[in-house]
């Protein structure tokens, strides 16, 4: 379970503090599939960064499965991510110098686990068998995002964060990626938090959290789980 308490984030802009998130409080239960939506600049990505322990809040707390992320050191946060979190990014962020398989192996290797068969299994699962030894540059956008998905699930994360996962893909490819994402969420029971401004995609989730100007302006249950 993710619990956010009175979370605020300010950045310095032109020497003056600029509030990007203002006093946000919310809870995302285990196994939830939630979307954070909102216009550009509403603070979606900042919130995702704070939930995933990629950044530190100015005020407030983020508690994941009972652990207060704000109390962890840099290495503690790294260990937290290695153990429990998976990521999917808009621009895939595969490591260009590693093959598809090696990219998927990284999170497992970080945990000190044997990674080979799990990586192959996941790559097959996202429909990339036979492409294991290709480098990112040799894969299409959709294929790269599928490798990213495989990587995100490789360490059996309890939580998956996805930042505009279809933002760089055409509709059909995006659709395919989302299907895989939802399947994996269902099969593995991973808590999934999606950031998107694609309402079509958001509607496929169970819950939509709307942000505007750094504050939660709506929190509704809808879409996939209901259907």
């Amino acid at each position: 379970m993710i619990r956010v308490e009175a979370l605020s984030k300010e950045y310095l802009s032109g020497g003056r503090p600029l509030a990007v998130l203002k006093d946000i409080t919310l809870e995302i239960p285990t196994g939830e599939l939630a979307a954070i939506v909102g216009p550009s600049g509403s603070g979606k990505t900042t919130l995702l960064g704070l939930l995933a322990g990629l950044d530190r809040p100015t005020r407030g707390r983020v508690i994941v499965d009972g652990t207060d992320l704000t109390t962890l050191s840099e290495d503690g946060l790294a260990a937290f991510r290695a153990e429990r979190v998976g990521f999917v990014f808009q621009s895939f962020h595969l490591i260009p110098t590693l093959t598809a398989r090696e990219n998927v192996e990284v999170p497992l290797e970080l945990r000190g686990e044997e990674a080979g068969s799990r990586a192959d299994e996941l790559l097959a699962r996202v429909g990339l068998q036979g492409r294991e030894h290709h480098y990112p540059a040799q894969l299409s956008g959709g294929e790269q995002q599928r490798v990213a998905l495989a990587r995100a699930f490789s360490n059996r994360p309890r939580i998956l964060f996805a930042d505009e996962p279809t933002g760089n893909l055409d509709q059909a490819t995006g659709q395919r990626v989302v299907e895989i994402l939802l399947e994996l969420n269902r099969e593995l029971g991973t808590t999934t938090v999606l950031v998107t401004h694609d309402l079509e995609l958001a509607r496929l989730t169970r819950r939509i959290i709307r942000l505007a100007d750094g504050a939660v302006v709506g929190d509704t249950l809808a879409g996939a789980a209901a259907g």
Binding site: A78, A79, F87, H93, I95, N155
Partner: peptide, 14 residues
Amino acid sequence: DTIAVLRCLGATSG
């Protein structure tokens, strides 16, 4: 970028 991704995936800066 690569370093940031590795850090995201849980690699420590060390």
